[in-house]
Simulated assay, not measured.
Amino acid sequence: MPENYRHCWSWFGELSRTRSSNGFGQNPISYSEIDAWSRLTSIELTPLEVSAIMRLDSAYLTIQAEQIAQRSKKK
């Protein structure tokens, strides 16, 4: 991640801790959740920062799904 977007990693962590799940795994972070977080923290996000958070979330969920698949193969 470019140095000038490292703060997005911290913001992603805050958002990720509040994510919901659906019984099959964790749900993606939604735009409405990002919007609510932004309003509650008084942090104005740029479109590029939102995009960075969404890309981090996608990567996170992909890794989680891979780990779950690997664990189920070991059973």
Rank of each mutant, 00 (worst) to 15 (best):
M1C: 06
P2W: 03
P2H: 04
P2K: 08
P2Y: 02
P2L: 03
E3M: 02
N4G: 05
N4E: 15
Y5R: 00
R6E: 15
C8K: 07
W9R: 03
W9I: 09
W9Y: 04
S10E: 12
G13Q: 12
E14K: 00
E14D: 06
L15D: 07
L15R: 09
S16W: 13
R17P: 00
R19W: 01
R19H: 01
R19Q: 05
R19K: 03
S20A: 15
S20N: 11
S20G: 09
S21G: 15
S21P: 02
S21Q: 15
N22I: 11
N22M: 11
N22D: 15
G23I: 09
G23F: 05
Q26D: 11
Q26H: 04
N27F: 02
N27S: 14
N27Q: 12
P28M: 10
P28D: 08
P28N: 10
P28G: 09
I29E: 06
I29V: 15
I29S: 06
I29C: 10
S30H: 05
Y31N: 09
Y31I: 03
Y31C: 00
S32Q: 11
S32N: 10
S32D: 09
E33P: 03
E33W: 05
I34N: 07
I34Y: 08
D35K: 15
D35S: 14
A36Q: 14
A36V: 15
A36L: 14
W37I: 03
W37F: 14
W37K: 04
S38F: 01
S38R: 00
R39F: 09
L40W: 00
L40C: 00
T41P: 01
T41M: 08
T41G: 07
T41Q: 09
T41L: 01
T41H: 14
S42H: 12
S42Q: 12
S42P: 01
I43Q: 02
E44H: 05
L45D: 07
L45E: 04
T46K: 13
P47G: 06
P47S: 04
P47A: 01
P47I: 04
E49G: 06
E49V: 06
E49L: 06
E49P: 02
V50N: 04
S51N: 10
S51K: 09
S51T: 02
A52V: 12
A52E: 08
I53Y: 07
I53E: 06
I53N: 03
M54E: 03
R55I: 10
L56F: 12
L56N: 02
L56S: 03
D57A: 08
S58H: 14
S58W: 10
S58M: 12
S58N: 12
S58Q: 14
A59F: 13
A59V: 12
A59E: 11
Y60A: 08
L61V: 08
L61S: 07
T62K: 11
I63K: 10
I63Y: 05
A65W: 07
A65E: 15
E66K: 12
E66W: 08
Q67D: 04
Q67A: 10
Q67H: 07
Q67I: 13
Q67N: 06
I68F: 02
A69Q: 13
A69G: 09
Q70E: 09
S72M: 15
K73E: 15
K74A: 05
K74F: 08
K74G: 02
K75D: 13
